[in-house]
C-alpha cells in the first residue's frame, strides 16, 4: 500500500517530464515547409503591371518553388540554370499581376519565362495539357514572355504540338534584368470573355499554376542553352487571388460569445436555485 501511495504522489513528475518532451519536440520543426501556393493580395490603387521593380511588390507575400529540368517529354534536358523561382502576386479586383524572380547569370535575347494555368474546372496535365489515358483532360492557358519580344503572349495548348497563340491577346508582360536575376511581371484581367480558352480567376478560390523558365544563353553551337521543351519546369501548384475582406466571421463570433454568456447566466442561476 505504501508503495502505491508513493507512486501516486509522484505522478506529477511524469506529467512535467511529458511537458518537457513536448517543449523539446516543438522547439525544432521536423521538416521545413515549402511553398504550395501563390497568394495575390488585394490592393487599392494602381497595380505595378509595367514595373517589376516597383516598391509595391515588397508588400506582396513571396512564395518560392523548386524547378526541375524538363524530363517528361522525349526532347529532354538534364541541367537547367533556374533552380527555383520566387513568385509574388497582386490584384486590384479587376486585374491580376504575377511577378517571377529567378537567377540567370547573363541577359540574353532568348531568355524566356511562362506561367501555365488550367482552364475551367477540367483537370489538365501540367505538360501542355497532354492527353491522359483514363481522364478526359482539358486545355491549358499559357502566359509567355521572351526578352527579345518585350511583351507577353497569350497561348493555349491541349497536348504537345498544339501550342498556339490565342486569337485574342489579353496578357501583358515586362521583364527587367538586374544583378544577375530576372524579374518578370505578367498581368491580365482577372476575367475575360474567352472562358473556353482563358483561365478565369475568382477571388478567394484556388487555381492551379505551373512555371517554366528558359535560359537563352547562346552556346558554341549557335543555339540557345534552353529552348522549346528543353527548359526548367515545375508541376502544378496553387494560386489564389485574395477575396475582399469579409467581416461576417467576426459578427458570428460576437453572436456566439453573447449566446455563451447567456447560457452561463442561466446555468449558474439554475444551479444556485437547485442547491
Amino acid at each position: 500500500m505504501a508503495r502505491v501511495r508513493s507512486v501516486g504522489k509522484r505522478w506529477w513528475v511524469g506529467a512535467v517530464g511529458l511537458l518537457g518532451l513536448c517543449v523539446a519536440a516543438g522547439a525544432e520543426p521536423a521538416y521545413s515547409q515549402q511553398s504550395v501556393a501563390v497568394r495575390a493580395g488585394l490592393v487599392k490603387g494602381s497595380l505595378p503591371v509595367d514595373d517589376p521593380t516597383a516598391a509595391a511588390w515588397a508588400t506582396a507575400s513571396v512564395s518560392e518553388f523548386p524547378m526541375s529540368p524538363q524530363v517528361h517529354w522525349p526532347v529532354r534536358i538534364t541541367d537547367v540554370t533556374a533552380k527555383s523561382v520566387k513568385v509574388r502576386g497582386l490584384h486590384d479586383g479587376t486585374t491580376v499581376a504575377i511577378l517571377l524572380e529567378y537567377s540567370d547569370p547573363s541577359e540574353d535575347p532568348e531568355d524566356a519565362a511562362a506561367l501555365e494555368f488550367m482552364v475551367g474546372d477540367t483537370k489538365a496535365h501540367f505538360a501542355h495539357g497532354q492527353p491522359m489515358a483514363q481522364v478526359e483532360g482539358g486545355p491549358v492557358n499559357i502566359w509567355y514572355w521572351k526578352n527579345k519580344d518585350g511583351k507577353g503572349a497569350d497561348l493555349g495548348a491541349k497536348g504537345f504540338g498544339t501550342l498556339k497563340p490565342h486569337s485574342h491577346q489579353d496578357v501583358k508582360a515586362k521583364g527587367v534584368y538586374q544583378g544577375g536575376a530576372w524579374k518578370v511581371v505578367f498581368s491580365r484581367p482577372l476575367n475575360t470573355e474567352h472562358v473556353a480558352e482563358d483561365t478565369q480567376f475568382k477571388p478567394g478560390e484556388f487555381a492551379s499554376i505551373a512555371f517554366a523558365i528558359w535560359d537563352g544563353k547562346k552556346m558554341d553551337t549557335g543555339q540557345p542553352k534552353e529552348k522549346g521543351s528543353e527548359k526548367a519546369i515545375s508541376s502544378w501548384w496553387y494560386f489564389r487571388a485574395d477575396a475582399p475582406p469579409d467581416y461576417s466571421p467576426y459578427m458570428y463570433a460576437l453572436l456566439a460569445v453573447a449566446l455563451a454568456v447567456g447560457f452561463e447566466m442561466v446555468l449558474v442561476r439554475r444551479l444556485k436555485k437547485g442547491s
Binding site: H125, Q130, M132, A133, Q134, G137, W236
Partner: peptide, 11 residues
Amino acid sequence: VGLPVEGMPWK
C-alpha cells in the same frame, strides 16, 4: 498520364 483519376495523373 496512364493513372486513373484517383492517382491525379495531371500532376
